[in-house]
Computed example of a mutant assay.
Amino acid sequence: MSLIALLIEIPVAFLLGLTSVIHGWGRVDEQAAASPMDWVPVLWLGGFTLGVLVIAVFFLYSAHPFAGAVQLLVAAIALCFTIAAWHDQYERAHPRPLPTRAGMPPLNHVTDR
């Protein structure tokens, strides 16, 4: 039963990753301007993580500790990808401000000679 669940999760995770990459391809030109967060990859990965956690709890509850441990490991990896996707979207939506030129004269400064 654990092997079946794992064999189902692998193609689902692959398709989820593929759709997330394809979803982001159209936004290469929009990287220059700040845009609102795109929650689609975060919600998809979060839903996958939640599904794997439900399967892990089911296995642990039905006295299959090894299968539950494998599912918890898969859920931990999926959670890392979810957090990385959230962080990527947050950084894209909230870019760092450009550094100021503190202590330096303005570029168009005319000096008296």
Rank of each mutant, 00 (worst) to 15 (best):
A34F: 12
P65M: 15
G24C: 07
A67D: 13
I22W: 13
Y61N: 15
H64W: 11
V28Y: 11
L73A: 14
A75W: 08
A76I: 00
Y61K: 14
M37W: 02
G46Y: 02
V57M: 12
V57H: 12
T82K: 02
G24M: 08
A63K: 15
A33D: 10
L43K: 01
V28H: 11
D38F: 01
A67K: 05
W86H: 07
F48A: 06
T49F: 12
Y61G: 15
I55G: 15
L50C: 08
A69L: 04
F59H: 09
F58M: 13
V42S: 03
G26V: 00
A85M: 07
F48E: 00
I22G: 06
V70G: 07
L43Y: 02
F66T: 05
Q71D: 15
V70E: 05
P41I: 01
A63D: 14
S35I: 09
V21I: 14
H23A: 10
L60A: 06
L72W: 08
R27I: 01
T49I: 08
V74D: 01
F66E: 13
L79S: 11
P65K: 12
H64S: 13
L60I: 03
A69Y: 06
L43M: 02
G24H: 10
A85Q: 06
A76L: 06
L60M: 03
M37R: 01
S20G: 09
T82A: 03
M37N: 01
C80F: 07
P65R: 15
V74R: 08
L50N: 05
V28A: 11
A34I: 09
A63V: 14
G47D: 04
L43R: 01
A85S: 09
P65D: 14
I22Q: 09
F58A: 13
V70R: 11
E30F: 04
A75V: 06
T19D: 05
I55F: 14
W44G: 03
L45T: 06
A85V: 04
I22T: 04
T82V: 00
